[in-house]
Amino acid sequence: MWMVEDRNVTDTLHLLRKEIARRNEKLEQLTDVELLVLDHIYFFAREHQDSVPGFERAVHRQIIEHIPLMSRKKNPMQFLVRWSNTIAEVEFPSWENIKKITSAFLNEANESRDLNQVIAADIIYSLAPRLMQPQRANMLEDTFAHRYLDAILEAIFGSAPQLSCDWANGSLLRYKVQQKQQESNDSSNEDDAEETQEKPVINSTVFKPDWVVYAAAGPALSAVGILELKVDYKRNPNYMTDFVKLAKEMKLILHQLIHAGVQEPIVCGILIEGNRFETFAMDLTYDGIYRLLRLGKVRLCTTLREFSLFPAVFMDIMTVKDIALKTATSVEKCHCARQLGQATTGRTPISWLRPSAGLIQRVD
């Protein structure tokens, strides 16, 4: 049971879900955060107005302070602020002088022998010249990913041997939604009714995240994080938004890790909608309570003039990397224990899992 001070958070969330389910049955309009509650996913952000409803502002602050991932302080990297400001302040940028400036950053980073500096310098060296290209109004997602994201993701996650990452072109996550069949009006034969319930109609729903980071342990790759990308934020009121889709995908990955016996797994997520850049984590620390935590919310730099935004983006992705590494380490320990025929300790009880709510659509 989740207790914060003298507040029973578990009971409050259960009451909230009961009320939202009642409203949903009446076909009332629900927000994205409320839709996720139907799936036992409870969203918490530092901003009270964005978080799951049902808590006073003071209680919300206590909850945020109670969650270690949310209370973590970010230490600014002064070298990165200096480098980024230097790039943003170049008056007449050209490919040649940008390369000369960023080459100096690489030399400085190599001399420091600080891995974070080397990673940051490598990203800036590759990314800054790309930001000189003119922006197009109708840029394709593949072009957007190559120009603004590839250099960042590849350097940060590629620098860790425990991780591997790739843009996902095919179906990655699949789950089955069981649709209850209507019971026969003729209830005289109870055996037939039970047999009907034991053979539900099965519909398969496939999720395809845009990018995946894996734990490179054992012969099979285990997903530990995903990214969803939308170049232009176009909200269709009748279908699942990328925010909801990301959360449901993270829940499915969490289920896969828990079923595999991974100890205290945490799944990470990145959501990019235009130049809005958000990072998330999801855990299952309490029975039936999937906590979706927003770790950061910044703007993505898409021009050289905006390069002063890069340190915030870099630090938020490094936080995601730390989470992915922690889960990848747990995956590796679980794999080694299985090879030795040993039972893993500290496993999340399977009874804590809740089935997915299936496809979520809005009502007009």
Rank of each mutant, 00 (worst) to 15 (best):
K100A: 14
K73A: 07
I98W: 02
A21F: 14
N97G: 06
R22K: 11
V81D: 11
E195D: 14
G269S: 05
Q182H: 15
L30C: 04
V9D: 01
R17S: 04
Q256C: 09
M282T: 02
A343K: 09
P134N: 06
D11Y: 14
Y286G: 05
P237G: 10
E96W: 09
E194N: 13
D191F: 10
R46P: 05
T327D: 11
L254H: 01
A45F: 03
V267L: 06
A220N: 10
L172Y: 13
E228H: 02
A137G: 07
N238R: 14
A120L: 06
N97R: 03
A128V: 01
L254R: 00
V213A: 05
L35I: 11
D150M: 14
P129T: 06
A217T: 06
E56H: 08
A260K: 12
G341E: 02
V90Q: 13
S94C: 09
V224R: 03
T302G: 07
E183T: 12
C334S: 09
A328Y: 06
T205Q: 13
L173P: 01
A151M: 07
V313L: 06
G269F: 00
M139V: 08
A343G: 09
Q361E: 15
A223S: 06
V298P: 00
E19W: 07
D232M: 15
G218P: 06
E5R: 11
L293T: 01
T10G: 05
G261Q: 03
I317D: 00
A137I: 12
A58H: 11
Q162R: 08
E96K: 10
S126P: 06
I20F: 04
T319E: 09
M3W: 15
Y214S: 02
Q361F: 10
V363I: 14
G225Y: 01
L140E: 12
P355D: 09
H259Q: 08
I64D: 00
E195V: 15
K180S: 12
I270R: 00
Y233L: 15
P68M: 08
Q197C: 11
H66T: 13
I270H: 00
D364I: 13
L106P: 01
P311I: 05
F44I: 08
K18P: 05
R113A: 12
K245M: 03
P311M: 06
M282N: 00
